[in-house]
Nucleic acid binder design. Structure first.
Lengths: 207, 207
DNA sequence: TTGACATAGATTGTTAACAATCGTGAACTG
DNA sequence: CAGTTCACGATTGTTAACAATCTATGTCAA
């Protein structure tokens, strides 16, 4: 989810056990749940691998987001009295801070999280869960097909979307979001593919 | 998912093992996955219980469907050349047949499945999964709050929605779907609650 | 009769040993 | 030298026994 593990990275049970200091049962439970969310793929008798979305899956993810997110922000802009805007305002501040400090990993994470928080603002558990899944998948895709660092987060588009919501302008908010999604998608290079990486150094590195 | 188990029914591991003739591991895996989909609730050291949505959750489910399904059918009506309409046409035939034979259980199942197939027609894996989850949840809710048998499936609304899609009329399709969802929701009695049932006779009965 | 407490039974959570499967590399053959 | 086969090691899948937790019953005291 934070792009520290490349797609197709093998996640062996034994390795995860010692890395996190837990028994195999916990590891297997976690792998099963991750697999049910499509974040990893479980191959029978072969192990768990970080999911590696293909072109068609990538298109599906963006198509699904194009279906859901525009009505979502339109709705937010309509009843913004009702909803949790503070969450979003605070978030934009975090994004700005990370961008000034040029913390690339943090920027990527927050950039996805903004969309999750748009859903969270509705206070609707189901909308939240759907968006979280789509955003996670988008993160994988950007990591795989993102041509360079520029594509993932066009600077202040998030901020503009929030402003449109705050000023109760549904049409503008929706339009800005659609453009935003298009920017992200068009920044992808559907031919390039990153190499698989077959150890867990990335996990160990952070603890 | 077929409303044969009432909400709050306890699903004990031992019972499931002998019912399905499998080991505890399989049962526990299944319960974990069902719990991740919100179909059952896992209480630590206490066991698994069929989920029992409350009023607020019910509202969330319908709000989520109101957000997603209208754009979905609008899109289907727009590019209906591209999509898998045969699936839906065949489905309507099944529904009619079940309705003539007055097979109540089958009608309920098919009635939910129509909406799942709307999503399936887009051939988008993510949209399909989201709708399946929402429909499943709706099924639980109708079972809990449905005042009587009439509410679950106003007769030929599904058929009319499909016709609107086939005749490339996005506005009409969207409008019919919104009415349809409203009918379902207004047929619920948010105060009534069905009694919990604490054995698995319903499962055993079918095999 | 009611309430609290303790004990026994049942149920879930965990661990560790075992079985099955797969990938790899060496040996063998054409 | 290329290709196939076999066997070994490593990894995953399963089972069964054990530990921990909760529920229910029964006893005792107020």
């Amino acid at each position: 989810m934070e792009q520290r593990l490349a797609p197709n990275t093998k996640l062996s049970e034994a390795r995860l056990c010692e890395t996190f200091g837990v028994g195999r049962m916990r590891v297997r439970r976690a792998l099963l749940l991750l697999s049910s969310q499509g974040i990893i793929k479980l191959q029978s008798n072969r192990g768990a691998y970080v999911a590696c979305p293909d072109k068609s899956e990538a298109n599906d993810v963006f198509a699904a987001r194009m279906l859901i997110e525009p009505p979502l922000v339109r709705q937010l802009a309509q009843n913004s009295g009702d909803i949790d805007l503070k969450l979003l305002i605070d978030h934009i501040a975090l994004e700005d801070a990370a961008r000034q400090k040029k913390e690339r990993t943090e920027i990527i994470r927050l950039s996805g999280e903004f969309h999750t928080k748009l859903a969270q603002a509705t206070r609707n558990k189901f909308i939240f869960r759907m968006m979280r899944e789509l955003v996670t998948r988008t993160s994988l895709i950007v990591g795989l097909f993102g041509s360079s660092e520029n594509a993932s987060c066009p600077d202040d588009e998030h901020s503009n979307i929030l402003k449109a919501i705050q000023s109760h302008n549904p049409a503008l908010a929706e339009q800005l979001l659609i453009s935003h999604l298009n920017h992200i998608q068009s920044g992808l290079d559907m031919e390039s593919r990153q190499e698989p990486q077959d150890d867990l150094a990335a996990i160990l590195g952070s603890d």
